[in-house]
Design a binder for these strands. Sequence first.
DNA 1: ATGAAAGCGCTAACAG
DNA 2: CTGTTAGCGCTTTCAT
Lengths: 353, 353
Amino acid sequence: MKQTLRPASGLRATASARPTIKDVAARCGVHPSTVSRALSPAMKHLVATEVADRIQAAANAIGYRLNMAAKGLRTGRSGLIGVLAPDIADPGFPPVLSGIADHLNAEGYATIVVDVGSKGSEQDLVDRLIARGVDGLVLATVSLRDDVVKHCLDAALPVVLVNRVDAAGQLPSAASDDAAGMRLAVEHLVALGHKRIGHVAGPQEISTGARRRAGFEASAKDAGLPARHTPVEIAETYTRAAGREAALRLLARRTRPTAIVAANDLLALGVYDALAARGLACPGDVSVVGHNDMPFVDMVSPPLTTVRIAQRDMGEAAARLLLARIAAPGASREHIVLAPELIIRGSTIAREH
Amino acid sequence: MKQTLRPASGLRATASARPTIKDVAARCGVHPSTVSRALSPAMKHLVATEVADRIQAAANAIGYRLNMAAKGLRTGRSGLIGVLAPDIADPGFPPVLSGIADHLNAEGYATIVVDVGSKGSEQDLVDRLIARGVDGLVLATVSLRDDVVKHCLDAALPVVLVNRVDAAGQLPSAASDDAAGMRLAVEHLVALGHKRIGHVAGPQEISTGARRRAGFEASAKDAGLPARHTPVEIAETYTRAAGREAALRLLARRTRPTAIVAANDLLALGVYDALAARGLACPGDVSVVGHNDMPFVDMVSPPLTTVRIAQRDMGEAAARLLLARIAAPGASREHIVLAPELIIRGSTIAREH
DNA sequence: ATGAAAGCGCTAACAG
DNA sequence: CTGTTAGCGCTTTCAT
């Protein structure tokens, strides 16, 4: 028998190690479980008020902090949420993230954000998060046919999507109304007298890319514009460079569009680059509309007309959805859709006839 | 005696619960500790290769994942690092963060990023991170006289600073050479013939604000410019609005500067706003230099001349420093300083005489 | 209202 | 090389 009891555990005020529930108990002359109860808001009512106060005081005095790892081990819930982001550096993402994190923090959760872009396989990242015992996942990365979704469902892990949706609509999501956003853009241009409007579409395996394109085509049709006057070119990635290339292809068409709607502000800046490369003026020769209203697009020249999406709200909605899912695993597959808003600036102008 | 053994633990393939080391052990007919050894890279050599392989296979077969909370509880190390950020939405921060996270991830750590701006007391945030058992902290928030620093030192928690330094220089840090950056800016303007150069300084309780200001004043003096021709106005926050106000004050001076150096790109954009408000042209009437080279300042009009700082490297250096600190708690209080670079664009022009 | 006991999943001495 | 044993800090029955 090897009893490795720490000598006089809990009595040494010399403690440099982190105090535990036992230290508090010893100091109050009560049993550790009583301390646990007194310090847990939910169980506090089971303990005499006077004792509870003494325990609270002692805990403060020695600077006791709950050990979440131990609690998590015991309860099976870590209070950790994983967030998979496509690229932290993308200027559109921080507001979403902060919406997510604020809401989650308020509920006592901490968030681990993982940037998928840089490191290898998304599966691996998810597995590492599972190893950390995350109680749920927010995916801002899902592409339309995606194995990660299946992977998470297999792991029986509560998951929500933000800013994206999955092809089958199986997962709860919070996203902007992409079709409505494109309609805003197209109708604005039509009202300005434009009859030939091009679209620089985003990657089609990402839901925003596919849905904005569909929204563009539908709105153009509804406005009575023939397909040959509403050409679409696809950018393979949401980057300025890809936007430039796609716009260049659009401008090389037989009948040049007098306006271009981009699926994204980054793409729109690429359109600016293409225009400059061809010696065309914006908005003089070609009007441009973006999407997302990312920071500082009001400072570029010309200030970009764009569709603002409710990024913070989106993040918050996703967090709420996830928490609901965690509380009731079988719950509703809700899709929250947020209304976009057109911000008119200097990059769109009436078409002189 | 109450033996609550799970019946036939590890034999049920029905398992919907997460498999544990015991399940793997049962499946292989070995003891759990052998599994632990076989699955730990560091201890694997203690186990027969054949057995180790069998264990590995079984683990994969049933989808076993290490439970980090349990491991952490046992070893006292969580593999979690906390990052305190002033504002995730600040466009300057993501590259730093991604430098930190990438390096840390590669070493098996996960990072919890906390945005200080939104929620209450920084102390509380730190305490919550301590409750999570973080192995160390990266502070991107420290102001020059700061109690958080003391709080962390008290908790004997390894800490490094990034992008900032503390007044006493007690903590290891990774930051850009602010003085050198300002010298680059001032000498550039002097070379262009400017003789009256103003400075929109950042908050003086933040090290970048204070050090860039000191750098500005030193460089101006070295260039032979009298103090009355190199006025300084302080912006209370690093925001476009505060930059505008400070610039307005600068422009209201008796002898108007022909160039303005801002402590930060956000501030520089505020200077643009002020110039526009006074009907002055940039760079025609007043040249402007920023600091940080944040995304898309090359797209504003005019494209901003600015001092680029090595943000990603800064993050990576901070991560390295922290890991070193964790490995050897008493280790060197190293200050890593990164060299900045001047990026000349359209907002600075020669002063016609 | 409190104490006792057991165990979450893992690792680290310590025997063999 | 492998099994035994104990325990990290906490919560939660179950008894008092």
